[in-house]
């Protein structure tokens, strides 16, 4: 009989709405948070759609996870508080890698790009979530946790906590947290850098809860006050249509694979970093960083 644990994200929805209202009021009063009507609508509709997709596929997700756990687990870890804490830390480690792959493999970027498609950075951006992650292999990265012996219900529970933690860091209203906190945890400052398209900031700060993973694996970049973050994509979307926002990178992959010559090129359009082309006519984030050093070492202002 699976553990019956609460769903943290469902509990948190009223809190999310309250926090968004507070940020809107704060932004209106101080100018330190900016919203835009179409952007807000699209972000929140993406959040709603993501919830509907997750709920629709919950049955398959749960059955698959329990099948792996029941047939392949090495240990039975039980459900004590230390196990929950260990699951929280290891699930965050899993998140770091799935997030990193989500930026470096176009197949996974096709699902994750949605979260980065807003040119604003406020609490509604946190809700701009993917509809298409089930089409990626990202779910496989949870299997090691089940195989170690963490019961899937515990993993789902701590993943929910991870998602809730990441809500509050999507804001410009909070500058910096205390130094000790910034050293260990992901914060609004660290995550602003992650969402920024300034070449210097690209492909950094993949952390969920603990920023230590980025420091361990060389992807940490601190926010530079002399280089204000500019948010969105390196090639921003001109549309607020949620369906197009959800599917645009998949359409791009399909077109590229269709026209590509040879199996290798077709696969590379799926597996190489976003922006890769056989003839180098588009730019990957590495190429953008190199170009930036060549052409434009100055700060990137906001539009």
């Amino acid at each position: 009989m699976p553990l019956d644990l609460p769903k943290p994200t469902e509990w948190a929805i009223p809190l999310f709405i309250l926090c968004i209202l507070i940020e809107i009021a704060y932004g209106y009063k101080t100018g330190r948070a900016v919203f835009e009507k179409k952007d807000t609508f699209t972000s929140m509709v993406m959040g709603l759609g993501s919830t509907i997709v997750s709920a629709s596929l919950a049955g398959i997700t749960i059955v698959t996870a329990y099948w792996v756990w029941e047939n392949f687990r090495l240990f039975d870890l039980g459900a004590t508080i230390p196990v929950f804490l260990a699951a929280l830390v290891l699930d965050d480690f899993r998140y770091y890698w799935i997030h990193r792959f989500g930026h470096r493999i176009r197949w996974m970027w096709a699902a994750h790009v949605i979260h980065h498609s807003s040119q604003h950075y406020n609490l509604t951006t946190a809700l701009r979530q993917t509809w298409t992650s089930p089409l990626t292999p990202g779910f496989l990265l949870a299997f090691p946790l089940y195989i170690i012996g963490f019961e899937p219900a515990i993993v789902f529970f701590v993943s929910g906590l991870n998602l809730i933690y990441q809500f509050w860091i999507h804001t410009e209203a909070i500058d910096r947290m205390p130094r000790w906190f910034e050293a260990v945890f992901n914060t609004p400052s660290h995550h602003r850098v992650h969402h920024a398209t300034n070449p210097k900031y690209l492909d950094s700060n993949y952390a969920g809860i603990f920023i230590i993973w980025d420091k361990m694996f060389g992807t940490f970049i601190p926010e530079d006050k002399s280089l204000p973050c500019r948010y969105g994509l390196v090639q921003d979307l001109g549309t607020y249509n949620p369906l197009k926002v959800a599917t645009h990178e998949w359409v791009g992959i399909f077109k590229d694979m269709w026209h590509a010559k040879g199996i290798k090129n077709k696969l590379m359009f799926l597996l190489a970093p976003p922006g890769w082309t056989p003839d180098g006519s588009r730019l990957t984030s590495d190429m953008i960083k190199a170009r930036d050093l060549k052409y434009n070492p100055v700060k990137t202002p906001k539009s």
Binding site: I24, G27, E36, K37, T40, V45, L48
Partner: peptide
């Protein structure tokens, strides 16, 4: 629940449009 959520989203979007006009 989805319809209520959508109505709340539209209300929030209009609130932001009203408070943050784009000029």
């Amino acid at each position: 629940l989805e319809i209520v959520s959508l109505l709340a989203i539209i209300a929030l979007a209009y609130l932001t449009g009203w408070l943050f006009p784009n000029r």
